[in-house]
Design a protein around this nucleic acid. Structure first.
Lengths: 160, 160
DNA sequence: TATTGTTATACTCTATAACTATA
DNA sequence: TATAGTTATAGAGTATAACAATA
């Protein structure tokens, strides 16, 4: 791991742990609140796994998508990530500056770039994938095996 | 509802819907990704319910907490919301400027404010609570009744 | 005309650090 | 000394709008 950490400032996952003596009202019965709490907990787990590489969840998603869909355009990447074109551009810049991805011009359409992971990008993804998976598994260990598959299924059903 | 909408710009929940023809790799099997997708979907539902009032999920949480814990301090509110003191301050300012909450000095400790909802704040909370609950229920209708209680239980177990 | 990538700009959220008043 | 609130500042993320090149 590199000892030079990126972005020591800026938004990191907050704690959102229970504060003793506080009455949370009916918050616990809301799906929105329960999802928010669980997602923040999972963010924490992710950051522990990817600390030092500067890889956030959206960036990790971009690496996975580029690996599985070589030659994808920036606009499509933005659609997958749910961001505007300009955001996909900044993300692509970030990856390219670090030599993780590259833009290649495409003969069939002069307007678009095809995006590809570099060898370095593929290597980082392979390393991260292992650690993220381990961390995801460790995080999920709070549940019984049957509960885990049940939760994934329910979440995907809920997300539509 | 007021026709004057707040913050027409700025971050709103993005879509993050499946893009046809894209290979998502093993993203679906990650808890982090499934949680993120489900949470964004629930954000969308929340924003539909609270559109126009400028109430975000953290602000709604603050209203609920202030209602259930009258006289709470800003620092404690920040702990509940998982934000720094300065963030709790800005949130309190926002609520106070709109006449939803007020700061009262406390005789026992000159350093702190006691925070309270105003009559207007209580009224807004009552209205929002109904609509948020309805929307939460509509959102959850994608699941069978037994699945809903199961999901809430699993999420809370996961969040710790 | 419509779309892609780009650039410029603005806004929200939230963190850190230093300051003041009080404990 | 420690803590609450405050203020100032900075940074990340992301949106909108306008522009040039290409379809």
């Amino acid at each position: 791991m590199n000892s030079k950490m990126e972005s020591p400032r800026g938004p990191r996952p907050s704690e959102l742990r229970r504060v003793p003596g506080i009455d949370y009202g009916d918050l616990e019965s809301h799906f929105g609140y329960a999802l928010r709490r669980a997602q923040i907990a999972s963010f924490e787990a992710f950051y522990r796994a990817s600390a030092g590489a500067g890889i956030t969840p959206p960036r990790f998603t971009a690496l996975v998508i580029l690996h599985a869909n070589p030659g994808i355009t920036q606009t499509t990447l933005g659609n997958v990530l749910g961001t505007a074109r300009s955001g996909a551009m900044l993300l692509t810049d970030w990856l390219e500056e670090r030599g993780l991805a590259e833009r290649r011009s495409r003969a069939d359409d002069g307007r678009v770039w095809g995006l590809f992971l570099t060898v370095k990008g593929e290597a980082l993804l392979a390393r991260l994938r292992r650690r993220v998976r381990e961390n995801d598994a460790a995080f999920a260990r709070r549940l019984a095996p049957r509960e885990r598959s049940s939760l994934i299924r329910l979440l995907n059903k809920l997300a539509g």
